[in-house]
């Protein structure tokens, strides 16, 4: 079984480009209904299937995602 992971998203820096969503093999991410202070909808976690693969963070142009994974 894959290791468990988690992500922290700096929502105020997110520009809502959605590239992280397309890159996530576990479909962990989706767009928020709300907007941040810049008026962008931002990425949010919608389930706890994250494996900490870091794909989302690698393609994030704005470096808003930090990734953790159990040891």
């Amino acid at each position: 079984m894959a290791k468990k992971g988690d992500v922290v998203i700096q929502i105020e820096k997110c520009k809502g480009c959605e590239l992280c969503i397309a890159s996530c093999p576990q479909n962990v991410l989706a767009m928020s209904d709300k907007v941040n202070a810049k008026g962008f909808r931002y990425a949010v976690k919608v389930n706890s299937d994250c494996t900490g693969c870091a794909n989302c963070a690698v393609v994030c142009p704005d470096a808003v995602i930090t990734v953790y994974r159990e040891k």
């Binding site: 468990k4 992971g5 988690d6 922290v8 706890s48 900490g52 870091a54 963070a57 690698v58 470096a63 995602i65 930090t66 990734v67 953790y68 994974r69 159990e70 040891k71």
Partner: peptide, 14 residues
């Protein structure tokens, strides 16, 4: 629901 967000688990950051 174990909290994974702690420094020793960090795998990717800016």
């Amino acid at each position: 629901a174990e909290n994974l967000i702690k420094p020793e688990n960090l795998v990717y950051e800016k």
